[in-house]
Each structure stands twice: as structure tokens, then as C-alpha cells.
Nucleic acid binder design. Sequence first.
DNA 1: GATCCTCGAGTTCT
DNA 2: CTCGAGGATC
Length: 672
Amino acid sequence: MGGPREVGARAEKLRREIERHNYQYYVLDRPLIPDAQYDALFRELQQLEARHPGLVTPDSPTQRVGTAPAEAFAEVTHRVPMLSLNNAFDEDEVSAFDRRVREALERENVEYAAEPKFDGLAVSLVYERGALARGATRGDGYTGEDVTANLRTVRAIPLRPTARRAPPLLEVRGEVLMLKGDFEELNRAQRARGEKEFANPRNAAAGSLRQLDSRVTALRKLAFFAYGLGAAEGVPRFTKHSELLDYLAASHFPVATERAVVRGVAGLTDYHRRIGEKRQRFPYDIDGVVYKVNDLAAQERLGFVARAPRFAIAHKFPAEEAASEVLAIDVQVGRTGALTPVARLKPVFVGGVTVTNATLHNEDEIRRKDIRIGDTVVVRRAGDVIPEVVRVLKDRRPARARHFAMPGRCPVCGSAVKRLEDEAVARCTAGLYCPAQRKQALLHFASRRAMDIEGLGDKLVDQLVDKGVVKTAADLYRLDVGTLAGLERMAEKSGANVVAAIERSKRTTLARFIYALGIRNVGESTARDLAQHFGKLEDLVKADEQSLQQVPDVGPVVAQSTAQFFAEPRNRKVVDGLRGAGIRFEHVPTMRARGKVAGKTFVLTGALAHLAREEAKERIEARGGRVAGSVSKKTDYVVAGADPGSKYDKARELGVAVLDENGLLKLLGEEA
DNA sequence: GATCCTCGAGTTCT
DNA sequence: CTCGAGGATC
């Protein structure tokens, strides 16, 4: 063996060589050398690294066998959110999508990039200066889990993508999945070892990726396909999505071979049909196909609605269906007292899992579908997730089949049940005096998106409420380890964890707190709007319906339920109790306090001389303002260009401030 | 008054 | 994910 330089060079050469063969084998499925020869190269590198531990690099192929288990996964914030896609289930929805795109772009016969939609888990792979630095799950789209060690074991994921010039930052988005054959093999092995089998390839892939011990992940054969980009610096400027995919393929990422560029609705539905016919023969599961507007500049113009892009849609295949029997229809009581009938089904395997329950939503739904106890029904997993009763097989209805009747009294507390005139749901009238509602309210309060109290689950809440230890959210902050440790399935240790989690929750944001209160009709988004607008809890508590309606997206109904909530002495007491327990809000200055554009609503009318309408909109939104289409009393400014229309008159009528273009530019300038 | 879009609430299984 | 309802818009 030569000097250290030669050893280092040899190791580097081996690493490149092995990764090249990995690529040939796992990505192209075209091995260049026999397995034995590959193994020899691999062993040589292992031995070199064993003798010279300084040579081991994180992107060495020997590191693909996994490392010692981690305690837990760290949290990762995605630089660019990993959003989900809207779905289309039939051709009408696809043509509606295409119509919206054409209208927004003012273009005919739009070009789309089409590709299969893999049924796996979305992940993000961050490459820094050409080497895999971090891999994460999608999580809620904004933050996911750091599963770098596990993703490193996936052979099809390049550790050093061979782009000619490695960009300083490259975030590749794609799907991790398990091939059908590997899934069968894994289950055979699990069975032989007497371990639990996986229900479907997707669960197997998910289970494998979430292993704390990446050595286990390394033994599971996972596949990967890239389909997009997240954050990037120094990457070539593409004009089309299809070019980006070509670039990824050239960089040695596996990309769907079935991808295509098509035009118009006919092209889309034709692609969907072609893939649908072939999909059984694919080595992996897909649950539909994805269409993206191919022109990237057009994608940018289309932008996003809430959590999904407007330029892309997933066209799903029809869900698998199966027949089962309705054994009973039970009634559940929700947080708002809503009574929901749930069908208890004879267990049936459908869409990759065993289904035993399916919500029937409400009485009307049961009547519409004419579902009776004892019926044989067709079940599917709506959107491949939530079980749904599709229809009754009437010819199999037994004579003993019975109608369902909504109980007149709450099954939990026995109070009267009322169904309002024009509402679909029946509700228990006891409010928080009903233990079921109280429990649900507490669970909501503790939920991740609210106060995020880990460990306070339904079993614990059940016991706390049943024993009368906790009546309101404020009582949670008086719990001690002694009280908790006395409960079932709660020892010192877990009790202490819960107390610590409750303690941690005292530091929160006003928006989360408002959401946690569980005011009727006030969800996450409205809670954020309220926090934003009022800035202080005290101001919200005092607000009357009039001032509540000044908040964007708050109308008479939300204003009324909010005002009513705070008017209730019992609720005021709980809020005071919580503040007294030491709940503090991170200071988030309100938009209103910050500037003249942020938090304000603008309406544009007439032609602007210097700014295109779109550009004006973008610049207002970039500073936290919003642009509405019509003038109302919630409008803060009307920007009138040349030849303003009726909006100008309306503004005068309502006494809304009117700006000319220079006035707008001045406002925008002051903010900058 | 009709229609589009978004939000809230309830739900399944692992 | 789906439904229903609320809010904004035309």
C-alpha cells in the first residue's frame, strides 16, 4: 500500500466507482458488472476505511448500511413549504382545472407535464455543495422530521449527484416508496420471524423510513423518484418543468420513466387513461397521475391557493371498493355536541387497510343513501384515506334490516338533543356540562395545532374528567405528578412528562390560544386573523359584534359566536384562570401597528400608469396587505387609476380613502 | 340571489 | 378527506 495520498485517492476512486454502479443498478436497472465484482469493490473500500478511519466521509457508499439508533428525529423547517395537491376524480374536474388555468393565463391549449403519482411518502433532500446534507419527511408541509440517516441508506438516492457543476444549494423533492415485489418479500420475512406484517407497500415504506435505527432501514429495500425542486441556488434557469426533470435525471436522480408532455384536456385525459391501463404492470403502486403547467413562468403567475398550487392537480384513479355488512350504527358526540352516526362494519380489507368503522355524517346522509342496520354496503376509502359507505346493495337486504333513528337524548349525558331548523346536524344541548363535550374540548385545547400538550391523550382525559379532577382547561395547570401518577397506565415518569408538557405550553402565541379556546366557528385561520387584528387578548375579550366584523373573513355568524363566547361568565373565568396560571404570549406585533400597507385591504380600479395590475397586487401583498376585488366597508383604500369605474363611486359613498397611483407608490415606498 | 372559495368540524387507521 | 356553512364576489 502506498502513502496516505495514494490511499486517499484510491478511496475516492472506489467511492465514485461504487456510486456509479449503484446508479446503474438502482436507478437505471442496467448493471454493468456482476454482483460479485461489485461486492469486491465494496469490501475493498470498507477495508480501506477500517484501516484509515479518517477517510470515512458521510457520502461514502459504505455509510448506506446505516448508523446507530437515534433518540428521536429532530424537527426540520422546510425552506420552501412542501404543499399538497388538489385532487380531481373525474374528467369534469380535470377540465374545470384546465379552464381555470386557461382563464388565468389567457392562453389556449396549455402545455402540461404529466407524470404518475407514486403512492409513497414525500421527502425533501437537501444537497449542499454537491453532497447530501439533509433529508426530511414532508410532515405538515412546513416542518418535517430529519431522517437523513435513513434516506442515506436508500441506494437510488445519489449521495453526490453528478451535475456538471455542483450548485451551492439544491433541494430535490420526491417520493420514497417500496416496490410491490420487495413488499411481498418483506412480509414473507416478517411472517417467518413471527413479526407483524405491513398492510400495504406504502405503510411498509413509511414504517421503514421512520425507524430510529437506520440499520433497519438499510435492510428494507426502498426506492425513490424525484419530481421537483425546493430551495435552490446556482441551479440552471429552466423555463419548463420537463427541463427540470431532465436535469434531475442527468444528475443521476431516478425520475419517472412514464413522464410525458401533453396539451389540453384531451392530452391530460388520454395520458390518465394510458397510465391507468398499464398501472397493474408497474412494479410500484400509483394512485393517480399529476398534471403540472409545464411553463415555469406561468406556474409562478398562477401561484397558490391556501395549501395547494393552482398550476398543478392530481388526477386520481377510482378508489378500490369492497362489500361489507353494517353490524350497528352508533352515535358519537363531538366537541360542539354534534351527534355523528358511525357505521360499525364487519372488518373488510379495502384500499390497503382493514376498515371497521365509517362515518355516516348525519341523519340526512343515512336517509339519502337509505342505509339500514344489517345492510350489505359498498365501502371505499375516500381519497384513499377516510372510509366511506358508497351505496347499499339492496338486493342483499335481509328482512331483519332496521332503520336508524337519531336518539332524542344524548347517549353520553342524557340531555335533550336538538336539531336546528336549517342545520344538518343534531346536537346535545348540554354544552360543557356534557362529559363528552368537555373531554373533546380538552383534547382540542391540548391538540398539536392549539396548545400542543404532548401526552394528554384521550385515555388520560377520560380519567381526569370522569374522576372530576379536571373540569376546564384552567384545571390542567393545577395538575401535579402525584395526582397523575395515581391514574391507570400512568407512572411517575409519564406523569412528570405530562406535567412538563403542560408547563411548556404556557409559552404560546395569541393565535394558538384563541384557537385552543374552541370558540364555535373559530378555527385556526380565523384565530390567526383575530389575533392579528386585535393584538391583545383583552381587546378581543371586550370586542362587540360590530368591531369583530371589521376583521377580514369575519361575518355576522362568526362575530356572534365569538362575542357570545366571551359574554359567558363561565368562559371569562376560564380565560382568566388560564392567564392566572401563567400563560404568556410571544409578542407578535400586529400588522396594523406596523405599517400603512400591512394588514390593510386595497381595491384597485381603473388603469394605472406605471404598474401593471398584477404587479401592484404583488407589491401590496409583499408588504402584508391584501387586494380585494370589490369595495366594501372593510376596504381601507381604493386606488383609482385613469377612468375609474363604479368602484370609485362606491368608495366615495362608503367614505373609503381614495388614493391615486402616486399615493400608492408613496405608501409602498415608505414601507420599503 | 347565485356561485365560488375557504374554513371549520368531524372522522379513520397506523 | 368530505361535508356543510360562512363570507366574499358577481
